[in-house]
Design a protein around this nucleic acid. Structure first.
Length: 933
RNA sequence: GCUCAGAUGGUGGAACUGGUAGACACGCAGGACUUAAAAUCCUGUUCCCGUUAAAGGAGUGCGGGUUCGAUUCCCGCUCUGAGUACCA
């Protein structure tokens, strides 16, 4: 029979499911290998053809690793808490769990059709109570921990309490809120429980505090920084504003340095690491205090200095003014009565500016003078204090020392408000703009005059420390991660409130189940949806009303796969010590500063508390490219009145007509040629459409856009599978181009891959499609074809170059077809090399060859023998001055010196030499010769 | 603006450490089989000139450089895509 992909694929998918062929064991003598995909959010639209790209690549790798003798863990699950299900619930009243369940069923059906080798016994769902029990448990561990900077790790909060009881707050070097109390052991003990808890909250790794958040009114929730793009929500594109709220936060900043250093130890794409580095944003500098100048008299001062952060302390003698952010907490008290009107007007003006205006308008210089002066701590110079919106409240101390000669923004500000610009380096050129050079020697700079950058920086820091007015400081751009969402469909926070302070629920009461509610909207009083739940309280107080953010469940899920059904721990010690970490993680780069950063953070924390063994969770990471949509257009003719007609103009002719483009379903277009009958049937109003054709065809226009229903450019894997089969789809997705490259989907070439699989099938069959392989010994030429592909597939998979492997398979099969090769010894090995790419057809042929069903999954990958690739005789390409001219056939047994002589004796070479003596003859081991004349 | 990635035929793309550029596939053209179509198979297909054939010339975004030899390395530029955005 001809290649019957439908029967074959159904049969083997059933076989794999029935026999649990891909079940991974947690103990075995084989070495382990963990291949992980980023688990999907099960959206209602189902999978389009772009989603499985990474899954196919990881599946090929997983299957290959099994052939190479590894015990492979290759699981799949669902990140099933999320916004879309909840919004659907708001509109329809349908419980999100019902929608989610239905979507998961669709996803599972689609995934199964592609023939993945997942171990489905280990499936996880973040929205399942068995799972989120442990997400809540990890939250509790974070709540019960603080970061000890001396030990450089997280420790149990009990240790901190013990220290407070014995020594008070002295000697504690922790990552904490800014305003912590100083107290003695006695004072600590005198605090009441309430006061103690309030103080401890400032140290906990997950904590509650009033913070400025990105509030999205349309979504009714706060968003993390990485969920906001240009002032709008990433999901839905709704406006986002800044708002102060009591919020749960995660002290990820405690791990900033380790998150940065860890990047050097992992095999990730460099651009991705760079994105994380930028996000963490380490800058090394100093904090400096500028005391209030004697000439300024203010009442009601909380502090009599302003602290700034700078990366260039060496330029401190060039400071001619100070700028603080309009939102800075000291603005009000540092404004003199005379300047109050000015300052108030300015603050009102900046408040009016939206986030977007402020970003777009970076050219205009604006600001206002507070009327106050500070003193330069090193030379006593009197320095005015200004406010301006180019200084951000959220970074550093929200105040900067302005050095117009060295910083362009300060320079423009000084020019605009006529403030002095002091040159401080001898080679500085500040005629038209600031010059931030670090070369040259300092001038106008007191005790650092004549020093170099490095010497000056050290000297200034030393002096400031001596005066107790400044110190070296490292600053990070990264902020603590907001951890609360005012939504329903997420993990409940396992906390109740007593006296306005949070307390953990008892561990034995986990999971804290998500309660049922009547509507999925905020309450009338503006509380989150959980405020509607009846009886939502602990015996000692009300439960928290916000739920955890989307990234909570995905920040540890790879551990759950190791031991997915454990109800005593998130995963057993043995399982974690066996699987350790993820060897290969494949997913999109859009998670660079979200999921991938939070996961590294939680992993480091879990390592600190001794629950996991590796510092980094994902040893190697590959970013698959995004598959874009490829839209087709038809061009509707416009009549003289400007109205659209029912006549359509072929793309090549549109310059001669007045037309308007219209998206057309890509599924009725093949190689840009519109199927006219299908077009007429596509929409009722096109039933009597007329066409202006070129060469008898209607050619459509093409554009690359995002894949979406409204653009009619969604290609569904189900359609392709029913037409060509899963093996063809798998190989075609790989054939499309390099895995890491983004590219538009184009179904045009899929026939080529389908033809290849049919030829492959035919190799094993005679003209009447009877299975027909011979037991004769293979010839040299056949062995050469086989070993070329054995080597190539191995090399390609190891370097994730799957597209070139597909080409090599085609070459090998063409060669063997030409040789009419049906030798068992060749075909048996050949089918193993193809198995990772096209598993169904391989399984079928493997059993036809007489092997036990299913045993191909763990067959040994054929051993490559280079001897088969060596030829007895080969030809040397000969070039003259680098230009190819001729080939000279030589025997392999010749010595190097003889080769040169034989080449020069060749008739063609003689002809090109034309009697001249060559200056040099270069013979390279790659069998290349260049003769320099 | 800054950071990163990329640019090769009509199209997707190959060329692993500098060594015969365009593998493989799509498309297109021609042919075989067929009453016809589908399927299959064969031949050709970077461009220019020429053409029965041969021979010749140019060519990997643009301009330079290093080298016997550059798609590959170096310098400058243009364009495209992604990330980021007053970070002191």
């Amino acid at each position: 029979m001809d290649y019957q992909f439908k029967d074959i694929e159904q049969k083997w998918q059933q076989f794999w499911a029935d026999n649990k062929t891909f079940k991974a064991e947690n103990t075995t003598s084989k070495p382990k290998y963990y291949v992980l995909d980023m688990f999907p959010y099960p959206s209602g639209a189902g999978l389009h053809v772009g989603h499985p790209l990474g899954y196919i690549a990881s599946d090929i790798f997983a299957r290959y690793k099994r052939l190479k003798g590894f015990n492979v863990l290759h699981p799949m699950g669902y990140d099933s808490f999320g916004l879309p299900a909840e919004q659907y619930a708001i509109q329809t009243g349908q419980h999100p769990s019902v929608t989610t369940e239905a979507n998961i069923a669709t996803y599972r059906r689609q995934l199964d059709q592609i023939g993945f080798s997942f171990d489905w016994d280990r499936e996880v769902r973040t929205s399942s109570p068995d799972y989120y029990k442990w997400t809540q448990w990890i939250f509790m561990q974070l709540f019960n921990s603080w970061y000890n900077k001396d030990a450089d790790k997280a420790e149990n909060i009990a240790k901190l309490v013990e220290h407070f009881e014995n020594k008070g707050s002295a000697g504690i070097n922790a990552v904490s809120d800014e305003e912590v109390l100083s107290f003695s052991a006695g004072e600590w003990k005198a605090f009441n429980l309430q006061e103690q808890q309030a103080e401890l909250l400032k140290y906990r790794l997950t904590y509650l505090r009033e913070s400025t958040v990105n509030w999205c009114a349309a979504l009714g929730t706060v968003l993390a920084n990485d969920e906001v793009k240009d002032g709008f929500s990433e999901r839905g594109g709704y406006p986002v504003e800044q708002k102060k709220m009591m919020q749960w936060s995660m002290r990820i900043t405690a791990y900033a340095q380790r998150l940065l250093e860890g990047l050097d130890t992992i095999d990730w794409p460099e651009p991705l690491k760079e994105m994380q580095r930028n996000w963490i944003g380490k800058s090394v500098g100093a904090s400096v205090r500028f005391p209030l100048d004697k000439t300024t008299h203010l009442s009601q001062l909380t502090t009599n200095y302003i602290e700034v952060f700078t990366t260039r302390v060496d330029t401190i003698f060039g400071v001619s003014f100070l700028v603080i952010a309009p939102e800075h907490e000291l603005v009000a008290e540092w404004t003199t009565p005379e300047q109050k009107a000015d300052i108030d007007a300015y603050i009102t003006q900046t408040k009016k500016k939206s986030e977007l205006d402020r970003m777009a308008d970076t050219k205009t210089v604006s600001g206002a003078f507070t009327g106050s002066y500070v003193t330069n701590p090193l030379n006593g110079a009197q320095i005015p204090v200004w406010i301006a919106d180019y200084v951000l409240a959220g970074y550093g101390t929200g105040a900067v020392m302005a050095v117009p000669s060295g910083d362009q923004r300060d320079y423009l500000f000084a020019k605009h408000f006529n403030l002095p610009i002091i040159p401080i380096i001898d080679i500085q050129n500040i005629e038209v703009e600031a010059d931030p050079t670090k070369e040259g020697k300092y001038i106008n700079s007191d005790f650092i005059n004549g020093l170099s950058y490095k010497e000056a920086t050290a000297a200034v820091v030393a002096k400031l420390e001596e005066l107790n007015l400044g110190k070296a400081k490292v600053n990070f751009r990264m902020r603590d991660a907001i951890f609360g969402r005012q939504r329903y469909w997420g993990e409940p926070v396992p906390v109740y409130f007593k006296g306005g302070l949070p307390y953990l629920i008892e561990e034995e009461h986990l999971p804290l189940l998500l309660p049922e509610i009547d509507k999925y909207l905020p309450t009338e009083s503006g509380e989150p949806p959980l405020g509607r739940a009846t009886g939502w309280k602990h015996e000692h107080g009300e439960y928290e009303l916000s739920t955890m953010p989307g990234w909570a469940g995905s920040s540890w899920y790879w551990y759950r796969y190791m031991d997915a059904h454990n109800d005593k721990e998130f995963a057993s010690r043995e399982a974690i010590e066996y699987w350790k970490d993820v060897d290969l993680y494949i997913g999109g780069s859009e998670h660079a500063t979200g999921h991938l950063l939070y996961s590294r953070f939680w992993n480091k924390f879990l390592k600190d508390i001794g629950k996991v063994v590796e510092e980094e969770p994902f040893k190697k990471l590959i970013n698959q490219g995004m598959i874009q949509g490829r839209s087709n257009f038809v061009y509707r003719l416009i009549d003289d009145e400007g109205k659209g007609t029912n006549t359509f103009v072929s793309h090549g002719l549109i310059k001669d007509h007045k037309t308007s483009p219209l998206h057309v379903d890509v599924n009725i277009v093949e190689n840009e040629i519109l199927n006219l009958n299908k077009f007429k049937a596509w929409r009722e109003d096109f039933a009597d459409a007329e066409f202006i054709l070129e060469n008898g065809k209607y050619i459509c226009g093409v554009e690359v856009e995002k894949m979406s229903k409204s653009k009619f450019n969604v290609v569904n894997p189900d359609d392709l599978i029913s037409r060509y089969g899963a093996d063809t789809l798998r190989m075609y997705e790989m054939f499309l181009g390099p895995l890491e490259q983004s590219k538009p989907w184009n179904t045009n070439g899929i026939e080529g891959v389908f033809k290849f699989l049919r030829k492959f099938w035919k190799l094993f069959h005679d003209a009447d499609f009877n299975f027909n392989v011979s037991n004769e010994a293979p010839t040299k030429a056949e062995l050469k074809s086989l070993h070329k592909i054995i080597q190539k597939v191995e090399q390609d998979i190891e370097r994730f170059s799957f597209n070139t492997s597909v080409s090599s398979f085609m070459i090998a099969v063409n060669e063997l077809t030409d040789l009419k090769c049906n030798k068992r010894a060749i075909l048996q090995d050949l089918v193993i090399t193809l198995a990772p790419y096209a598993p169904h057809i391989s399984e079928e042929l493997w059993t036809l060859l007489g092997n036990p069903a299913g045993s191909i999954s763990t067959a040994a990958y054929p051993k490559f023998n280079p001897a088969y690739l060596v030829e007895d005789e080969f030809s040397y390409p000969v070039s003259f001055n680098g230009k190819m001219k001729t080939n000279v056939s030589l025997s392999l047994t010749m010595e190097a010196a003889d080769i040169e002589a034989a080449i020069l004796a060749n008739a063609d070479v003689q002809k090109y030499l034309d009697g001249k003596t060559p200056k040099k003859v270069i013979v390279v081991k790659g069998r290349i010769v260049n003769i320099v004349i």
